[in-house]
């Protein structure tokens, strides 16, 4: 499988892998993954079991790859994994907080386990807990925390030692919409304001569209695509049309347009029109045609807009290609 290298935003790659492979017997968790990750926020997208967590664990040196190489912050994962673990933070997907310890004590302890001295660890813990938004509750045992507070505590321990790179595995898991938005905003701040490179995973594509500079899509252990978020959501050349009325009106318009040589398909209440043929593509001829057809049929035109791609489309394309 060909490796796709994304654009790097200044400086050398934060993570670079070459032919990274991990097989558990017959289960192929990762297959020949070659990808580079730059600074800023990078989203790692894939369905459950696509190999996201496996990739992170290999990069941390917790799992040994079956084949291939990888470098994190310039260090080889097999030779210098201890050096890597000194410089990165990790927020796992699953619950990992002891219930009988307060977030404050826990983050201090975790900062010390990363090599900070006692007073530095206390200072950093207080700072980081403030940044993630845990206030008075930081002194309470974590067993009584809500899911949102637990996710914040997990994030705080990942940032406690001021890493240069953090791996955030499904940070929005189990959060309600408001907490989800907060968490995503925080992830974005880590990448931009804090200046820490972020590799964040999610199985929800829309989320990563909002916060990532760059997106890597994994499917069944294979790299589907790696490029900047802007490229993913660029215009596709397709058009979306919506008319007043119900599905009957939508279908009447679709059929009439199809007779004029446009390829149409229903999408919700709208008609999606594939990029028009060359003779209609020039100077908005297709838009004029749609307007005229709607007028002929006596339909009220509500919306006529260029379609933008979504990250979901990458999966659809990948699905048809394989």
């Amino acid at each position: 499988m060909a490796g796709v290298t994304g654009e790097l935003i200044g400086g050398p790659a934060v993570i670079s892998t070459a032919g990274l492979t991990k097989h558990y017997g017959n289960v192929h968790a990762l297959t020949d993954l070659t990808v580079d990750v730059g600074a800023g926020v990078t989203g790692l997208v894939g369905a459950n079991g696509a190999g996201k967590s496996t990739l992170i664990k290999i990069l941390l040196g917790l799992l040994e790859p079956t084949g291939g190489h990888a470098h994190v912050l310039g260090h080889d994962i097999e030779q210098q994994s201890q050096e890597i673990r000194r410089l990165v933070g990790y927020m796992p997907e699953h619950d990992c907080l002891p219930p009988d310890v307060s977030a404050s004590d826990f983050v201090v302890h975790m900062a010390r386990m990363s090599g900070l001295g006692a007073s530095a660890a206390r200072e950093r813990a207080a700072d980081v807990l403030r940044h993630v938004g845990l206030d008075e509750e930081r002194y309470r045992p974590m067993g009584g925390y809500s899911t949102g507070m637990k996710q914040r505590a997990k994030l705080a321990q990942a940032l406690a030692h001021d890493p240069r790179l953090v791996f955030l595995d499904e940070p929005t898991n189990g959060l309600d919409p408001a907490a989800r938005t907060d968490m995503l905003r925080l992830v974005q701040r880590i990448g931009s304001d804090f200046g820490i490179a972020v590799l964040v995973t999610s199985h929800l594509l829309g989320e990563l569209e909002q916060v990532s500079d760059h997106v890597i899509v994994l499917d069944g252990g294979h790299l589907l695509r790696s490029s900047s978020t802007g490229e993913f959501t660029e215009r596709t050349g397709s058009l979306l049309v919506e008319v007043v009325g119900t599905e009957t009106e939508r279908d009447r318009l679709g059929e009439a347009l199809a007779q004029r040589g446009l390829t149409c398909r229903p999408r919700g209440a709208m008609v999606a029109i594939d990029p028009p043929p060359p003779e209609l593509a020039e100077g908005g001829a297709a838009q004029d045609l749609i307007r005229d057809v709607a007028a002929e049929l006596g339909l009220g035109l509500m919306r006529l807009q260029p379609d933008r791609r979504h990250l979901e489309d990458v999966f659809l394309e990948g699905g048809t290609r394989v």
Binding site: L62, R85, R86, P92, H94, C96, P99, M110, M113, S114
Partner: peptide
Amino acid sequence: RDLRHRSIVLYLARP
């Protein structure tokens, strides 16, 4: 404790 609550992962992700 570290194994049951899985905080072992946080330790092993450190040096």
